[in-house]
Amino acid sequence: MVVLLKGTAMDKGWIEIHDAGMYVAPADAFVDPVKPVQTALITHGHADHARAGHKHVIATPETLAIMASRYGDNFAEKTTPLPYGHSLDLQTVKIRTAPAGHVLGSAQIILEHNATRIIAAGDYKRKADPTCEPFEVVPCDIFITEATFGLPVFRHPDPASEIQKLLDAQALFPDRSIVIGAYSLGKAQRIIALLREAGWDAPIYLHGAIQPLCRLYETHGVNLGDLQSATIGERGVPQDYLKGQFIIAPPSALSAKWAQRLPDPMVVFASGWMQVRQRAKQRGVELPLILSDHADWADLLMTIEQIAPKLVWVTHGREDALIHACAQMGIPAEALSLIGYDEET
């Protein structure tokens, strides 16, 4: 990622790049600001995009609920829910949201001003996900895209075939516990839903950090089946009832003392990065699942082709390759070089 030097503001017409992030000047609002601001438009609930401390937050109702669950009910002085398809005016800018397919409530923010439509897509994916609305293609003049997996090496396989690996491992090692490292918002719920789709009806065990967001998903109509806490029983003592079971935990818990209660754990990690074998090995993963909530290379290109914008801006990730590929498609593209956004872990 290119570092934007402090104090420099890059002017992109009515979009400016400030220290705090992308600034929509005629609306006096920021998209996913990384510092506290007056008015924030939030694409989705991941902590690097939805930070605490803004005065006024505009987002989908689901994203607002996620932020409230994370930061407390009074996380902002004012919140404005903007459901998919609805719009509101901020000064001279018309603002609308459309599903981004990334996690529950994730939205593309559609900005219209002076007869120009700019879409800040946030993080998005195109592969099917039973836990959120699919990405909606909206034509626009300028499409602002991420490029987390912006290299041709990233070709995310069919999620069902990846989930089958879990079931195969469970059948092969019935005496081991299978602990899946997954981000607590989005990835965890998607894995549970995919396991259910694949026919796994037994209880799935959760690390404490995963539970609140699973409950939140369920209140928003995503059925996750029988979920139980994996945090019962004494620390450091392997719990026999977890043999042959799936346990979902945030990645950081896998190396913590918490994991010692798991009997002979097989460490699974679900991420788009798992495609690169040496990376998977480096993380000490025994069973890598290539499962991502971001668009892979082919889907990035397909999305840009379908939207057919006049211009592409790339926010974060491997922007060089994506810009090169856009040029080959005859669409000019530039890097916005935003800082402060984590990549999928």
Binding site: P152, A321, A325
Partner: peptide, 16 residues
């Protein structure tokens, strides 16, 4: 079979 620039960027990332 692959665009040389894209291959170079990919190789740089994967390292193998």
């Amino acid at each position: 079979v692959v665009d040389p620039d894209l291959f170079a960027l990919s190789y740089d990332f994967v390292g193998d």
